[in-house]
Design a protein around this nucleic acid. Sequence first.
DNA 1: CGATATGTAACTTCGGCGGTTCCAAATCGT
DNA 2: ACGATTTGGAACCGCCGAAGTTACATATCG
Lengths: 151, 151
Amino acid sequence: MNSRFVMAAHVLGMLALHEREDAITVTSEAMAESIQTNPVVVRRLLGDLSRAGLVETKRGAGGGVRLARAPESITLCDIYKAVGEGAELFGRHPAGPNPMCPVAPMVAEYLEEVFRRAEAAVHQSLGGTTVAQMSHEVDKRIRALGGKGCR
Amino acid sequence: MNSRFVMAAHVLGMLALHEREDAITVTSEAMAESIQTNPVVVRRLLGDLSRAGLVETKRGAGGGVRLARAPESITLCDIYKAVGEGAELFGRHPAGPNPMCPVAPMVAEYLEEVFRRAEAAVHQSLGGTTVAQMSHEVDKRIRALGGKGCR
DNA sequence: CGATATGTAACTTCGGCGGTTCCAAATCGT
DNA sequence: ACGATTTGGAACCGCCGAAGTTACATATCG
């Protein structure tokens, strides 16, 4: 799978941390530096997250990004769905099952049900963690090392 | 994710069906035709499945593949582990978190725990289905359409 | 010994994704 | 009004992994 989910979770985690310190919005460039990627890549993610109603962005000087909702109300499953839309957890082989063979389509069809169950299991697992929990835990570990905030 | 899991499940499903009809082994070429891929691709999969102790292969004339264990004792999770060894369900971004930023490594570390839980959820979900169940269900659907076996 | 099948190495091809550049649009301060 | 800043997004490049393909070695049966 893509690393989009990891980056998106990283973004939301940072926003939750900064929200606690102060209400200042964060720029895509600052986040790109933390993730070690290009600001444009971050903005592409932000587009999905914004459409999903998880973050709010503001253009222009002094603009940036902040959480659109309370971090307690955002789960990792929300993020997963926001950035993974259309992407399947399990890949099918491109050609599909042989329609001439009577068993192949049936196997493929049955596997789709299995995949739906597995996907639901992932959703439930990710849904058990909120962005607030994540930021709390991360914050705890940062303090344990005596560090201060990023920037 | 790769389509290796789909193909491997397809292979095991076919073997279970043929085991019921008769004890004849199936050739990699016949399975490749059903999956619509190259026989070599199937054999690569069979290598993993064989090493995992799920199938037995026999070389030479009259050779082929058959299940190494009772289909009731093989779960889809076994297949998943056999062919997905080393592959991660969630992709990390290549560069990794910025070690200069105090929050990035902590976020990455925390996400690893989240991923382990999600991966475990998938294992449990897939572990709830056996190859025998799959072949029964597929067999039922084939009969519902009045078809006969493949080849 | 020849036909058949697996086992595997080596190479090619192709698609997806992250990275990059570039510009439009919006917002703020002066 | 103008320039600085920052998001939005189109367009393209390059890399990497996986499937596909070819070729050949090995094993087994009649």
